[in-house]
Each structure stands twice: as structure tokens, then as C-alpha cells.
Design a protein around this nucleic acid. Structure first.
Lengths: 205, 205
DNA sequence: CAGTGTGAAGCGCTTCACAGCT
DNA sequence: AGCTGTGAAGCGCTTCACACTG
């Protein structure tokens, strides 16, 4: 993975939210205040975030919506399609495969894996479910960028190890466990129940 | 919602992860270092986090696993079942309903809603799908604690408004949009593609 | 000794405030 | 006048380091 300018993680996450706001903003220009309002953050925060990537604004006017969107997409690495594999064709994996958000945002699912013999060969929304042991060759053949882990907790680490062995350096993990990976691999976790659990704290008495 | 001691949000999120680690730890005692190792954080962080809730440890020994688990669960508000409704019975809603993690962790889904006539009345893993307009009465009748939003982006705010009008004060939002809610309502967002998008940044070149 | 609990230092993100540009 | 870009201040989380304890 090539090194590039260090950008705070919270900034990166907000950038993605800004992109969505820009995508459905109809005015030709937009101010940091307007972005902030839609994203639920401070306007200075928006300007500071954008400044990590360059100077896009025009004092007294704001930002040119389409131009800003295009620039940011490119700088975020979201201007060209990324190839994704999904491991785990259970309820969660199926939902992810059917989730329009992925393809809409430039992520193309190129293969789906599962180790359940009953599922292998079956098709899921056009994707043939392949046996887990064909992961390595598939990743190499198709030049996969990102691996999504949608298997039960106990198998997650094993799947991650296989992905890494196959050369994948970007992983999104939906299993509720902290994965151990080498430094050059980026793992992002999405935990479906974590947020629910923190709510419990606030709802007490 | 009663005010209670202010605990940093990052701490709350880590607490939930600690709980999971404790649940499948077999030794009678556990050290902050062991928890830290499993959670991928600093040991001092673990002790500091725990100290927000009290003094549970024994110098030279560590923490009594089961005792700590029970105490933390109680203090996090996770010692008794919470009632949850899910709005949106599409791919994501269905996956959530089938996700064993919810029920396993003390969240009981008590009703599922959708406004698609083709789905209403149908059963999904034992849950009858109800029309959206019966949300208010159901929330009141069943004493619902938490609402999960699993509808498309465009409908999310409307659903949130209805939940709030019905008296729900804790919401988990799976739609990729920032919801506007009153101060006394706690919203937690789970964004399925956000993490994927941030990966793109790291994978450039 | 092994390991907790915590004051204090360190660090990084957020917010302010304002100079500067149009 | 309106709004950006940013140095500096503010603030909160993280990490250190060590006194203390069984």
C-alpha cells in the first residue's frame, strides 16, 4: 500500500457523508454551512476537512457542487470501480449482495464464497456461490481489491487470514470480533449490534 | 431519559466489546492486559474504561471474569431484555431479523413493519409484518424501547419522526443519512457502505 | 511480584475567530 | 457583505508511569 498524506480517520468518515450530501444537492454552489447543516456537524469542521484535500472554495460564494464532488471522489479513490468479494452467503451476506448501496457507489461484487456445500453452485442474485477454497485463485484472477467478511464470529479470523494470504489488503468485517492482521492490511469493522448495545446504556431508567 | 454520569462515547463502544470478550473467556480471572490484547487496545485504556463504572479488580490478580461480566452488563443496562421494533422488511430488515446476534444479546424483536402491501400480513421468521400506520399503537401497547430503521434513505427521516411521535427515544439507523431528531432522542447510525468507502482511500495506487 | 487504579502528561480532533478574497 | 482557509485555542480521549495492594 502506497503511503499518502495522513488524514484523520474521523475526517475520512465525514468525507464520505459529504459526498452523499453533494450527490443529491441541486444548487450549483454549496456553502460549508449548508454541508454542515445536512451532515449535522460544525461548519468549520467541514472547511477543515476539505482543506486536507485542497482548496476548492470561492470566498463569498462557496463551493461549486459538481466540481467539488468530482474532485473529492477522485481524491478519496472513489472515482473508479473497486472489485469486492463477499465471504459468507448467509442472511447477512445475502442482504449485502442485494444491498443497492454497494453497486451504486462504485463497488462491484465479483465473487461470493461460502463453505456450506448446500449453497455452493447455487446462484444468489446472479452471483454463483463458490467454495471457500477457491478464494485464493479467484482473488488473483480477478484482481480483487476488497474482501467483505460476512461469516459467523468463529470463522471470521480464518477468513481474514485467507484473504490476506490471497493478497487482499482491505477488509470490511461484519463479524463481532476484533481481527488480528498485519500492519499493511486495513480492516474496518461494521458491528450490527454494538450501536444497539450502547443505546441500552442511555435508555436506563 | 434520566441523566446519568457522562461516559465518553468511545468508552461505551469499547465496553460492549469487552463484554463479548468476557463472555467467551474461560479462565476464572482476567487481566486488563488480556482484555486489551483481545480487543486490540491499550491495557491502561481498559482499566480507565472500567474505572468509569467502579473498581472491580484485585491488584496482583486481575478481575473475576464472571463477576465483572455481570457487573458490567448491569451497569450498561444490558441485564434485562429490551424490546425492539424493526421498520423495513426488505433485504436488510430481513437479515437483521434473522441475525442471531440480536436475540442472543438480550434484544427481543417484538414487531416488524413495512408499508409494502405485498409484504403486510406475511410472516418473516415468526414475525408478522405489520403496516407502518400501526406503529404508534403497537409501540404503546408493547412498551417498545428501541426502533431500528432499515428502510431506504428517502424514507428514513419519516420513519424516525413516526418512531419519535410514538414515544421511542432510542433509534438505530441503518439508512445512509443523518437524521434530525430532538435532543432527548438518542440515534446511533450503522452505515454499511461508509467503511467500505474509507477503504478506497487507503487502497489508492 | 503481578496487576490495579489514577493523576498527569501527551496528543489529536474540534471549534473559534479572523484575515483575506470576491 | 458573504464565505473561505487556517493559525491558535480549547477540549477530550489516550497513554504513561507509578503508588499501592494482595
Amino acid at each position: 500500500m502506497t503511503e499518502r498524506k495522513q488524514i484523520p480517520d474521523p475526517t475520512l468518515l465525514r468525507m464520505c457523508r459529504y459526498l452523499r450530501i453533494l450527490e443529491r444537492y441541486s444548487e450549483p454552489t454549496i456553502s460549508s454551512a449548508a454541508i454542515a447543516e445536512a451532515a449535522g456537524v460544525n461548519a468549520a469542521q467541514v472547511r477543515k476537512d476539505l482543506s486536507f484535500f485542497g482548496e476548492f472554495g470561492q470566498p463569498g460564494v462557496g463551493y461549486h457542487t459538481k466540481e467539488l464532488l468530482a474532485s473529492l471522489k477522485r481524491m478519496m479513490g472513489l472515482d473508479e470501480e473497486l472489485k469486492v468479494i463477499v465471504v459468507g452467503a448467509g442472511a447477512l451476506g445475502s442482504a449485502l449482495i442485494n444491498y443497492p448501496g454497494f453497486e451504486n457507489r462504485g463497488f462491484r461484487i465479483v465473487a461470493v464464497f461460502d463453505n456450506n456445500p448446500a449453497k455452493i453452485g447455487h446462484r444468489l442474485r446472479g452471483y454463483e456461490i463458490m467454495p471457500f477454497d477457491r478464494l485464493k485463485e479467484t482473488v488473483a484472477d480477478l484482481n480483487v481489491d476488497i474482501g467483505i467478511i460476512a461469516v459467523p464470529r468463529v470463522s471470521a479470523q480464518e477468513v481474514a487470514d485467507a484473504m490476506i494470504a490471497a493478497g487482499i489488503t482491505g477488509i470490511v468485517n461484519f463479524a463481532p470480533v476484533t481481527l488480528k492482521v498485519p500492519d499493511d492490511v486495513v480492516v474496518r469493522g461494521v458491528d450490527l449490534t454494538l450501536q444497539l448495545e450502547t443505546l441500552a446504556y442511555y435508555l436506563q431508567d
